[in-house]
């Protein structure tokens, strides 16, 4: 809770600074419109939280997003109805995640190596089957998923709210959530206690792939483009947000609240720096400093506690 408190305080301070520097930035209208920029980051951060708490990592999320996006684009081009093409894209994402899951849980290869391999392989596959050609010209109705609003709130944000609530409840209030912490704390002990380690790992990576598939579909709707080079490097942003939110990179510790705060802090910093200083390179520096600072803080806090 302590770490979440610190990140929340930082977030408040950033917003106060924003209000002082750029009153226009903190208006509800601007915030709502900018919030869609964080959709992919936030959605992917949820399964990543589970995976990292369980002692794993998924580097292939961005490439899976691209693979799903290309699936959607090619099926749309071939005349498949969009609901079906979207379902297929999410399924391809889930299948890509399941492949990671099998290698991690059944073949027992380290997730860093598995997903490093699929990071390259899925991107290559996406480039290969699309020949690098983007697909655009999605109908208005489909674009609504990414760009539409309900009572002024962008649809992607509504999707996120639901996803966050589900993830929060599952992680903190269910047996499955408890298993995730147990595995991350000590995998061997978890096995001895009868936790279905393999099944949980398989499920987590499949879920991560599914989320990436959904992110690919929403991105296509948001920017009216499905193509093979989307989401490049997003996995590192996602991991940054999750770690910033207090999830231990060694597993066993972390909360969805922390992740949401980490995502919000990165998002607001990124938008504020871009809004006020208008220097892309500065955004990276600020996020780097915040990350190192927060990890130092975490270490300090845990040392004091010990």
């Amino acid at each position: 809770m302590l770490h979440e408190g610190v990140i929340a305080l930082l977030l408040i301070l950033v917003m106060v600074l924003a209000a002082w520097l750029e009153p226009g930035f903190i208006s509800v209208g601007a915030q709502l419109e900018l919030s869609t920029h964080a959709f992919e980051l936030a959605l992917l951060a949820l399964p990543m939280t589970f995976i990292i708490i369980a002692g794993g990592i998924d580097l292939s999320a961005g490439s899976t997003m691209a693979l799903a996006s290309v699936t959607l684009g090619l099926l749309h081009q071939a005349g498949t109805p969009l609901w079906l093409a979207s379902a297929a894209a999410v399924s391809v994402g889930a299948a890509a995640g399941a492949v990671n899951g099998i290698f991690v849980s059944a073949v027992r290869i380290h997730p860093l190596i598995v997903t490093l391999a699929t990071l390259a392989a899925y991107r290559g596959l996406a480039e290969g089957i699309s020949l690098g050609r983007p697909v655009s010209g999605f109908p208005e109705g489909f674009q609504w998923i990414g760009a539409g609003t309900v009572l002024g709130v962008p649809v992607p944000v509504l999707v996120l709210i639901v996803a966050v609530m589900v993830a929060g409840v599952v992680l903190s209030r269910t047996v499955a959530g408890h298993w995730v912490y147990t595995i991350g704390g000590n995998e061997l002990a978890a096995r001895h206690c009868g936790v279905p380690v393999g099944r949980v790992q398989f499920g987590l990576y499949t879920l991560s792939g599914m989320a990436a598939g959904l992110a690919g579909v929403v991105f296509a709707a948001r920017r009216n483009t499905a193509k093979a080079d989307i989401g490049a490097g997003i996995e590192l942003e996602v991991i940054t947000a999750v770690v910033l939110g207090g999830v231990s990179i060694f597993g066993g510790r972390g909360t969805i609240t922390g992740t949401v705060l980490g995502v919000a802090l990165i998002h607001e910093l990124r938008e504020l720096v871009g809004w006020h200083w208008r220097r892309d390179e500065l955004i990276l520096i600020v996020i780097g400093v915040i990350l190192v600072g927060s990890v130092l803080l975490n270490n300090l806090a845990s040392r004091r506690r010990a």
């Binding site: 720096v273 400093v289 915040i290 300090l300």
Partner: peptide
């Protein structure tokens, strides 16, 4: 921890 938090904020402010 709060002192450290202030440190982080200061570091960000200085970088910026």
């Amino acid at each position: 921890v709060w002192c450290a938090a202030l440190g982080v904020i200061a570091a960000v402010a200085i970088t910026a």
